[in-house]
């Protein structure tokens, strides 16, 4: 299945690393956003986005708020979400899962881990 990604991170470096990893995995269709607010705008303008990869700590609207916003949205509440973040404590992971992220990757990650998580999520859809 061809996927169209939205990569959300306030760090230009991280967006580029995630985007390069996705391209290396053969995924060429992707859009980027610098925070949760921008991500919602991109989602509203591109209803064909099929996968969201988001950071947690971001200005304006955080990744967690973005997840909650997506899950509460009538149109794209079923879009798979992978959270990629530095936050690795149990409470954070449980909070993200409670907000209904599909999976959780801690930074620094490898392209292999990214591939594994994307495939796991898509297999469970």
């Amino acid at each position: 299945m061809s996927l169209k990604f939205l990569v959300v991170d306030d760090s230009i470096t991280m967006r580029r690393i995630v985007a390069n990893s996705l391209k290396g995995l053969g995924y060429s269709e992707l859009l980027e956003a610098g925070d949760g607010k921008e991500a919602m705008d991109v989602l509203n303008a591109n209803r064909d986005i099929t996968f969201v990869i988001t950071d947690w700590n971001m200005p304006n609207v955080s990744g967690l708020e973005l997840v909650k916003g997506i899950r509460a949205h009538a149109t794209y509440n079923k879009v798979p979400i992978l959270m990629v973040t530095t936050r690795g404590v149990k409470e954070d992971i449980m909070e993200a899962l409670a907000a209904k992220v599909n999976n959780y990757v801690v930074k620094p990650f490898t392209p292999a881990i990214l591939k594994e998580k994307i495939e796991q999520i898509m297999a469970s859809q």
């Binding site: 306030d10 947690w56 700590n57 971001m58 200005p59 955080s62 973040t85 530095t86 936050r87 690795g88 404590v89 992971i93 959780y104 990757v105 801690v106 930074k107 620094p108 990650f109 490898t110 881990i113």
Partner: peptide, 20 residues
């Protein structure tokens, strides 16, 4: 507060991801 992770660290990615 909230724009950054105070506990961010560059540790061994494999063991951390395994734990998660």
């Amino acid at each position: 507060e909230g724009n950054f992770d105070m506990n961010a660290s560059f540790h061994n990615q494999v063991s951390s991801q395994d734990d998660i």
